[in-house]
Amino acid sequence: MNSVVQYFKGIADGIWSLLKGMSVTNRYFFSPGKIVTQKYPNNRKDLVMFDRFKGDLIMPHDEKNEHKCTGCGICQINCPNGSIEVISKTITTEDGKTRKAIDKHIYHLGKCTFCALCVKSCPSDALAFSQEFEHAVFNKELLTKQLNKPGSQIMKGV
């Protein structure tokens, strides 16, 4: 007799547990307000990334086309993957002194692992991350970027 009770109890418990699961999914089907996905390419305009989001390495320039990079190369030393190449040159300032300055700050996006050691170790805060995340390109060479803009100069007092 006990086994018969067990048999029917098993059926009832089983069906009850299945109904509980179905009630959850059924509830979600009838509440479209709970949809969490976003229509990504359509919401590009109002898509806000977090301000610390590590999208792309940039060198911020001010409106006078000046940056803070001194060309010291510490970022290059700290980078674990060799994704930064600092090519420096010697320039002569107005008062006749020669000093080291940046010629090209090359950044290989394809090698970067976004560990943020370059940004953290930069003594003059010349590097930062941007919120840009659409990196797909058709040509591999486009992933190699020059971070200092053409004709840019170092900011005074850095």
Binding site: F50, R52, F53, K54, C115, A116, K120
Partner: peptide
């Protein structure tokens, strides 16, 4: 992951600790 992203800038690959402390303060 959103919490991670806001504080560390990464979602899965956080790289948040560094010898001696943390890369940045919490958001």
């Amino acid at each position: 992951l959103d919490i991670f992203e806001e504080t560390t800038g990464g979602r899965m690959i956080v790289s948040y600790s560094c010898p001696g402390g943390l890369m940045y303060d919490i958001h």
